[in-house]
Design a binder for these strands. Structure first.
Lengths: 203, 203
DNA sequence: TTAGTTACTAAACGTTGTTCACAAAAAAGA
DNA sequence: TCTTTTTTGTGAACAACGTTTAGTAACTAA
């Protein structure tokens, strides 16, 4: 009877193996090489076995997405060392866009790709992104409270700034800015941060 | 010998047929139903025939993309009736985001999807998007010249505003904003326009 | 009429994600 | 211990996809 919990442990370990294989393929060979067959090959089981532990491919991608959110959230932690809300806001934007440009495929998976979202049953499963979003949210509220930002609606301000950052990096990642050569992308990102901060903030 | 030009005309007509079929499928059944096999079925030829007129699927999608850019550019024409640059800027943003939200799959094809970009040989083939981008560009220059906007670099200002608009709609289109229910999306878009205009413009 | 070019297609290739009938192994019950 | 049941894993297949190739049919030119 006590074997029930061992079974569950083994099941969990197998799931971890599959995710580890998927992650390895994702990092080493890129998204398009993350196929059920390659994952199966990697863990030395048959493709059909994968389906005993995950409903479908999207569910696996969804789990990978979670790892990305954890990484991003981790990077945001350094923000707590910055006291000035305006500086903090700038640093937050910088961290976000750096993450995106340094891990373009992860960012793509997290914020652009269709696939992993199909696995989202309800908006309740948003705990991942929620944490990272709330970091920005609280910074903006601080900015408003301390008079750096004169926005009426903090929610709109927050969503606007997120949209701006997402817009920039997703245009680059999906190659929609031929007017900006690759080697200038980073300085454009800095230029946009400067522009936003100087146009937006009062002090 | 005079049949040479007839041949070419027939070749052109066939290409048009294929594009028309692709467009029809795209509009009526959505992107994922635009397959070479379905296109072939639609024009009553075999799949292999399609490859006599187009190098690959991406080239076809690229041509569809062009139609989208034409539509967007056409919508922008009403802007010439607006004289005040600030009003014009707002209207431009509204037109852009309305286009995106009303034709989500077209917008996706134009600005998000990976596929059609692979067919772009060189950044020189950007004439399509260039026209629509220059509309925004000239409005912003007018805003700066007439003192509505105090940006140092118009290029950065232009790219920032495009990024903002693209960011908003692409977050919605790719379902990354579970904190905003679908029925609120339009008012958020208006809120962002208000926020941007009031924070950015001086008069 | 014949030789040569062009237009077209059936069939196949190599991929996907996914399912299912079945075998092997492990666990539970007698 | 022997038998029954449940779990765990797989080979083979299905239905799609984009694409290629070998070969046929039709038109063109001499």
């Amino acid at each position: 009877m006590g074997s029930a919990e061992r079974k569950e442990r083994e099941k969990h370990e197998m799931r971890e193996m599959i995710l580890a294989a998927a992650k390895k393929l994702f990092i080493k060979e890129g998204f398009e090489h993350v196929t059920i067959r390659r994952i199966a090959e990697e863990i030395e089981y048959s493709p059909a076995t994968v389906y005993l532990y995950f409903a479908d491919k999207d569910t696996i991608l969804c789990a990978l997405q979670e790892l990305g959110f954890r990484d991003l959230f981790k990077r945001q932690q350094v923000l707590s060392a910055i006291k000035n809300p305006a500086e903090k806001l700038r640093a937050c934007g910088k961290i976000y866009m750096n993450f995106a440009m340094e891990n373009q495929e992860w960012y793509d998976l997290m914020f652009i790709m269709r696939a992993p979202m199909k696995a989202f049953e309800s908006p309740a499963d948003w705990n991942l992104g929620k944490d990272t979003y709330e970091v920005l949210q609280s910074i903006i509220i601080d900015c408003i409270d301390q008079g750096y930002l004169k926005a009426k609606d903090p929610q709109i301000a927050c969503f606007s700034l997120w949209s701006l950052m997402h817009g920039v990096v997703s245009i680059f990642i999906r190659d929609r800015a031929p007017m900006i050569p690759k080697e200038h992308q980073e300085q454009v990102i800095n230029g946009i941060l400067d522009f936003t901060m100087s146009e937006l903030l009062d002090k």
